[in-house]
């Protein structure tokens, strides 16, 4: 059983860059676009996805021997929905402000394709450790992509980085507004599409260059 499929370490490493869920698989685009106008939102979303994906992957891996092929998607969805509800309640209890800011996007993790894809691709076929390290790797890859987009959007849109938690002003607030003023468009949805598009383009460009070399 341990000989088929990638090892835990391979799964972990592949999730971060080579099979990055957002930049390579282009999955989970809804939260990628929706919550990346601040680093706080992006990191809270990453944490919630890490929790849900790790729990769902481990549980699916444990019961993979009992799955009926035609009922497996139902079991995946049920499992994911249960853990998403737990994550939603935990955020409401311990991170109330973030829970309000993210609003419906936390319950919407249920339909995040990354999680059901990992359950199907990895957890339903491989052991618990592989499934767990796959979940952590994919979540870090998700967090990396969200962090990249959120960095661009928050710095250009607000002039801060982790403005609410750490209060870092990347662009000093004292700069006169006729020299530089925040780009409101980066805070709004178009900023997310622009940033994601450029980032995907850069990823593809780098892939093409690496292949040629």
């Amino acid at each position: 059983m341990s000989n088929d499929g990638p090892t835990p370490l391979e799964r972990f490493v592949q999730g971060i860059i080579p099979e990055n869920p957002v930049l390579r698989q282009v999955l989970g685009i809804c939260p990628t676009l929706a919550v990346t106008n601040t680093m706080e939102g992006a990191m809270t979303m990453t944490g919630a996805v890490l929790f849900v994906l790790a729990c769902a992957n481990v549980l699916i891996s444990l019961i993979r021997g009992m799955l009926k092929p035609h009922l497996r998607i139902l079991v995946f969805t049920l499992t994911i929905a249960a853990f998403v509800t737990v994550a939603d309640r935990l955020l409401a209890a311990f991170m109330y402000d973030m829970s309000k800011q993210l609003g419906p996007y936390i319950p919407l993790i249920i339909v995040n394709c990354i999680i059901i894809a990992r359950c199907e691709i990895c957890a339903a076929k491989q052991g618990v450790w592989t499934a767990f390290s796959d979940a952590v790797g994919q979540s870090l890859g998700f967090g990396l992509a969200l962090g990249c987009i959120a960095t661009v959007r928050e710095v250009l849109g607000f002039g801060t980085w982790f403005g609410k938690w750490l209060g870092w002003h990347v662009i000093p607030a004292s700069i006169p507004t006729d020299v530089w003023s925040p780009w409101v468009i980066m805070v709004l949805p178009p900023g997310a599409f622009l940033t994601l598009g450029l980032l995907l383009g850069a990823t593809n460009w780098m892939t093409a260059r690496t292949k040629k070399a």
Partner: peptide
């Protein structure tokens, strides 16, 4: 066929009630 789905639904339902 659906025993696993039924069992999981009951377990998750109970667990979520506890969390709430």
């Amino acid at each position: 066929d659906a025993w696993l789905v039924i069992l999981l639904s009951l377990l998750f339902g109970g667990g979520l009630a506890g969390v709430q």
